[in-house]
Every structure is written in C-alpha cells, then in structure tokens.
Design a protein around this nucleic acid. Structure first.
Lengths: 106, 106
DNA sequence: TATATATTTAAGCAATTATCTAAATATCGA
DNA sequence: TCGATATTTAGATAATTGCTTAAATATATA
C-alpha cells in the first residue's frame, strides 16, 4: 500500500500509468513520450512494477507493459473510506460524523 | 495535484488523515499517536496543509486541524478515471478499450 | 555466429525528505 | 506581567530519490 502511494507520487510515473490506461505499450514506446533517458524510464517502470501497478511480459525483443488496475482499486478504496466512506455521508468538507467500518489499517 | 499525491505518500501523514477523518484534533492530540517528536508532526501537518488536505484554525492556545476532503476528492477523481473511467467499463485488469473523456491532464 | 536493437543493471551524484534538538512565538491564567 | 503550556521555526544530518552515462543482458536476424 505504501509502495503504491509512493509510486503514484511522481509525475512521470503517473503519466506512464495514464499512457497504459489507453493501451499496453513496450518500454521503448513509453520512453518516447518522455524527455528522459531510457534507463530512467526503466527505473520508473520497475518502481511501478514493484508496487504492483503494472505488469510486464517479454515479447521477443520487446517488453510489453500493462496496467494492473487491481492495485489502483486498493488505493481507491483507501481514499473512498475517507470521503464517501461506509454509508450515508453527504461528502464534502465540514462537520464530520463518520461511522467507522471494520478498520482497514495502514 | 502532485503535492497532494506526495503528501499522501508517507505513512505518518496518511495516519494523520485517518485520525482527522474521525474527528478534528489539535496538533498535540495528533502527536500523541506517534512515536515521533512534535516538531516532526508539525512539519507533516504543514505538508498536509500546503497540499490542501487539511486546514488549521487557532483556538486559544491550541491549533485545531480538520480534514479537507475536497482535495481528496480530486485525487479520487484522478484514480477513478483509470479504473471505472467514464462509462461502461467492466473494471478489473485485462484487455482495455477505454473511451477517452475530456482529458484532465496533470 | 556476429551485429544490431531493446531493455535493464550498475555506479555515481545532486536534490529532496524525514527526522532530531534547540530556540522562538503565541496564548492562557495567576 | 510572569511562568507554564502548545505549537512552530531554525538548523543540522542521514536516508531516499531521480536522474545521468556506461556497461551488461537478451533476442532477432543476416
């Protein structure tokens, strides 16, 4: 969970995620979108992979990356708990009186 | 946006956010939950404040912190775009063929 | 098998971050 | 106004991060 949040806390990595939302891409294709060396992109991809946000699969010479939305859903869940939270919550700011759920921890 | 993500990418800060979800608290009350010096907590609170995730208000001797879910909703929106996304999306992994929305950019 | 292409790993460095202690500031209450 | 309490600001330092170039690895193809 922490690794996921940390992985998301970097603009190039979020950009990569958005690129993979549209379609799967090879490391080289991803690198083309950036003004950054390929090793740097490779490093970012590795960070995303370790966080479980992307998966990779070698296809011959290339390595194709895909988005794994499962982990994104977890992050989403953490955040939802704070806003919508469990039940009837009018959302948005001001006085809160949440009803706690089975605590998720972390 | 980036500041929000970065603010969330740290366990103590996420813990603070969770504490404030339950109810508003003073800096000192928050600090009691941690094994960390008060200046460190103060610094984290400042980070969260700059990211717009919390607000503070002096109440006499104390400074009371409150959660601002508005910014959390923005982060939430960013993530939702990747999973649920715009319309009919069966969610979860595998082959994607999203219909792009008005791009949000970051 | 030799060469070219795709990608990662290694090594190093500068910038950022998280933390601490000490000192400063603000408010309360006698 | 003085001392106690609450909190932040300053200054320092160690750890982490993001980036680079050079080298290594894996696959394809001639």
């Amino acid at each position: 969970m922490n690794e996921s949040f940390k992985a998301l806390a970097d603009p190039p990595r979020r950009q990569i995620i958005r690129l993979l939302r549209d379609k799967d891409r090879t490391a080289g294709e991803i690198a083309e979108f950036f003004n950054m060396s390929k090793p740097s992109i490779s490093h970012h991809l590795n960070t995303l992979k370790h966080a479980g946000l992307v998966q990779d699969e070698r296809q011959g010479q290339f390595i194709r990356y895909t988005l794994n939305t499962t982990v994104l859903d977890e992050v989403l869940g953490w955040l939802l708990e704070l806003t919508d939270s469990v039940q009837g919550n009018n959302r948005r700011q001001k006085k809160q009186e949440h009803s706690k759920s089975a605590k998720p921890e972390e």
